[in-house]
Computed example of a mutant assay.
Amino acid sequence: MKGVHFLISTLAILAFATFLASAYDPSPLQDFCVAINDTKSPVLEGTLYVGFVTSNGDGNRLFTKVLNKGDVFVFPIGLIHFQLNVGHVKAVALAALSSQNPGVITIANAVFGSKPPINPDVLAKAFQVDNKVVNYLQKQFWYNNS
């Protein structure tokens, strides 16, 4: 009988631990883009070309916008996104992350600069390029590629 109680207790603990391990910050965001053209905003300046790509299930659609002073753009959590200064002066922008544990992953650094490196055959097939291109990219110094 003690064995049955032990087994049930162990299963309950494992089920609870699995629940905790799969927890994440839920995102209430249901829409993609918000853009407000308010040229009277006193904080930001410059011109940025920004965008993101939706997930595979949504057809990998690209959403872009040129942001001017006072504009706002929302990047949905977990999607590939970018920002590029297309103006003639330095751009100042604000970023807010919704996670309790925010972080940044630079895709080029993660993919081509991983240690140990990702097998070049995998990357060649994923990016539909020759292995020579992958080898060249993996040999680059990826610390600061700006």
Rank of each mutant, 00 (worst) to 15 (best):
N135D: 15
T54R: 01
L20R: 06
Q140G: 04
K115Q: 10
D130A: 03
A96K: 10
W142S: 02
L79C: 05
I13K: 06
A23C: 10
N131F: 00
F32N: 04
A12L: 15
S22E: 06
A21M: 08
S99H: 13
G103F: 13
A108W: 04
F82D: 05
D130H: 11
T18L: 12
V104K: 11
S27D: 12
I105M: 10
N85A: 11
S9L: 15
F6M: 13
S99M: 04
L48Q: 03
S22Y: 02
V50Y: 02
N135S: 14
V66N: 05
I107G: 07
T39V: 09
H88C: 03
C33I: 14
G3Q: 14
A110I: 04
V66G: 00
L84P: 00
A124L: 04
F127Y: 15
V53M: 09
L123E: 00
S99F: 05
L94I: 14
N144R: 13
L48C: 05
V111Y: 00
W142Y: 02
N131E: 10
P42S: 09
T54L: 05
K90I: 09
V50W: 02
N85M: 08
A110G: 02
L94Q: 12
N109I: 01
F75R: 06
Y136L: 07
I80D: 03
K139L: 04
K125D: 05
L123D: 00
S27M: 03
F16I: 14
W142Q: 08
L94E: 08
Y24H: 11
P116D: 03
I105S: 07
G46M: 04
P117K: 10
H5D: 13
L97N: 13
A96I: 15
P28N: 10
H88P: 04
V86Q: 06
